[in-house]
Structures are given as C-alpha cells and as structure tokens.
Design a protein around this nucleic acid. Structure first.
Length: 351
DNA sequence: TATACGTGGGC
DNA sequence: TGCCCAAGTAT
C-alpha cells in the first residue's frame, strides 16, 4: 500500500484534540518539545482507560509531582491513594518503580531509546513505542486497540484478535513514516477514537476512506474480529468496617501482588464462588457487629462480586491476624483513597 | 498462548 | 440490564 501518512497528518493538523499532556502540531512548529514525563505518565494512565477518566488524574498527579524526580521521592501510600479509583493498580506500583529507576539509572531523564524504555517497569511494547515516537520523534509503530481496529479495516484483516496482532503490527510498521512519527502515532490513535470507531464508523469523513479495503467491501463494522470471551463467575465475600469513637477507621494495606495490590481495603473474608447464609471470615476486632442493609455489587475484569458489609462502633484494638489492620484517623485517610469496590462498601454504611 | 488485572460510560 | 469497550503489562 502506498504511503498514506500524509493524508492522516494533514487531517491531524486540523483535527488534533486538545489534551493536557499533548503538544499539538502548531506548538511543535513553534519549537515546543513534548515533556517525556508528561507523555509517560499519560500513556501509563491511558492503558485500557479512557481519556475522560484519565484527565483529572493526570492533572492532579502533575500538580502534586511536577517532575519524575518529584514522583520518585513520593511516599508509596500517597501515590496509591492518588491513583485510587483509576483501576489496574499494578500500574501505580510500576509507576513508582519506573520513576525511581529513571532517577537511579538514567539521571532523572527518560532514555531516548526504545530498548532502554522497554526495560523499565510498566513499560511494554505499546508504551515504549508511544514514548519513543511521541516524546522523542523516533519512528516506532504504536499498536493499541485503536490501531488494531484501523489496521484490520484498511487491510480487511479477518483473523481474530489476539492472534492477528503480529499481522496488524506488520501493517502498522509499514505505514509509520520517518517524518513526524510522534504526530502520526497520535493521529492514527485519534482516528480510531473518533472516526474509525468500534460501532458505526464514520467512513464518510475518514481521511483514509479511499484506500480502506473494509469500507470498499462493507466489512468495516464487523472488524476487528475477536475470539469469544469467557463468562464471569459470581463470587461472594464479607468486609468488616470498624469505626472508632474518634472517627478513625480500621483498614489494612493489601499485599503488593494480586487484586487491588498495594491499596487500602477493609478487612474481610476471602472471596469465594459459593454464597453462604451468614457473614464469612473472621471479624478483625472482637466487638458487636451488625449487618449493613443492602450489599455491594461490583464487577472486576474476570468476575462479579457481591459483598456483605458488617459495621461496628468500637474502641477495641485490632486482633493480630495474618493481615494486620490498623486504625487510620480522618487526617490519614479519606474514602477517595480507596479502590472503588472498597469505597462502595464505605458508601453503603452512610445510607 | 492464556490469564490476571479495575473502572466507568455507552448502547 | 448486561455486555462491550478504553492510548496494555506482567507472568
């Protein structure tokens, strides 16, 4: 296929959407260089996450930690609390590891090198290519969900994902230009986000409408094909919310691995596949517990969860258990520091 | 290659 | 309402 990048770059010059982390083409022509820290932070936040959800988090992070060195020096708990609600919490743990590695191993500056970027925690093939191209204008092809869809359509590729990824990557690399690779990367992702959408693609206004094989053949709306997903099981559990007379709450720091790793949470039972009649697990303090009316329903990536919430007003000290919990005062903790499922449990106690 | 890993919005 | 989807990475 001929070089299609010019049509897309011309489209991007006019239609580039403003985003807090983005350096638009006009600013670049005026000599403004993208800030690699801002590009990196935004790309990590944008992994499997919408622009609408990321924007407020990005603004808060850059306000609080303006440079990668500032972030590297932050307390773990502060970063996890600031990330709370955004999901995929391994990203936040790796964000800190990466910031500290950039300071310790690269003198506080992101390396302008794809292979070196790929070695850093939380930076995989997509993010390394995005940083290389957007921050450093190196010609590396990005392949995210948008680009997969755009490539599948213009080449009318019917192999289902994820098996089609190597094929789609070959196409993406073939189209990536040596000139303005950063603008091109953002342009092809913008195209997928705004015109070449999953449903009802706007082929009538697409700058790549003419060469697009799927548009010619009428297959665009059904591409890309995907292998079927497995059904989500329903799991059940109980959380225990202990409220001290001074307003402090009993919370535990979850282990660094696994679901909600590194985040604060209410002590409670394991989450199991069977529903029991009674609350499960062991209360974290010996006290009078009452069941909160209602239940928490929450869906994770691979299962549905139904939580029973138990509440107690007590000044008992927590029992020493496998997961040590401690009281956190009002100045140490706010509900916005919690991952969403735990915040839902908290909210249930206030209704 | 397959699975674990969050959340909120759109239809 | 329930399913699909969103600028993926680690294991």
């Amino acid at each position: 296929m001929r070089d299609l990048s010019k049509e897309l770059l011309d489209w991007y010059d006019v239609h580039a959407r403003a985003m807090p982390w983005r350096t638009p083409p006009a600013d670049k022509r005026a000599g403004v260089r993208p800030d690699p820290y801002a590009v990196w932070l935004s790309e990590v936040m944008l992994q499997q996450t919408t622009v609408a959800a990321v924007t407020a988090y990005f603004n808060r992070f850059t306000m609080r930690w303006p440079t990668v060195a500032d972030l590297a020096a932050a307390e773990d708990g502060d970063v996890m609390a600031e990330w709370a609600g955004l999901g995929y919490y391994a990203r936040a743990r790796n964000l800190l590891k990466c910031a500290r590695a950039v300071v310790a191993e690269h003198g506080g500056a992101f390396p302008a090198d794809h292979a070196a970027l790929l070695m850093l925690p939380g930076i995989g093939p997509y993010t390394a290519a995005a940083l290389s191209s957007i921050a450093f204008d190196l010609p590396h092809a990005v392949l995210d969900g948008n680009v997969e869809r755009v490539m599948a359509r213009i080449y009318d590729e019917h192999t289902p994902l994820p098996a089609a990824k190597p094929i789609l990557m070959t196409h993406a690399e073939a189209l990536t230009p040596d000139a303005r690779p950063g603008d091109y990367a953002q342009a092809v992702m913008d195209l997928g986000a705004t015109i070449c959408t999953p449903k009802s693609p706007a082929c009538g206004i697409c700058p790549w409408s003419d060469p697009c094989l799927a548009r010619q053949r009428g297959t665009a709306p059904e591409l890309p094909r995907k292998t079927p997903k497995k059904a989500k099981p329903v799991r059940h559990g109980t959380v225990y919310i202990a409220r001290r007379s001074d307003g402090a709450y009993l919370l535990e720091r979850r282990p660094d691995r696994g679901l909600l790793g590194g985040m604060l949470g209410w002590p409670g039972s394991d989450w199991v596949d069977v529903s029991l009649d009674r609350p499960e697990g062991t209360p974290p303090v010996n006290a009078q517990w009452s069941k909160v009316q209602g239940e928490v329903r929450h869906t994770f990536t691979h299962f549905h969860l139904i939580l029973t919430v138990m509440l107690s007003d007590t000044d008992q000290k927590p029992d020493a258990g496998p997961n040590t919990a401690g009281y956190m005062t009002k100045t140490e903790f706010g509900p916005s520091d919690l991952p969403t499922v735990m915040r839902k449990a908290f909210d249930l106690t206030r209704h």
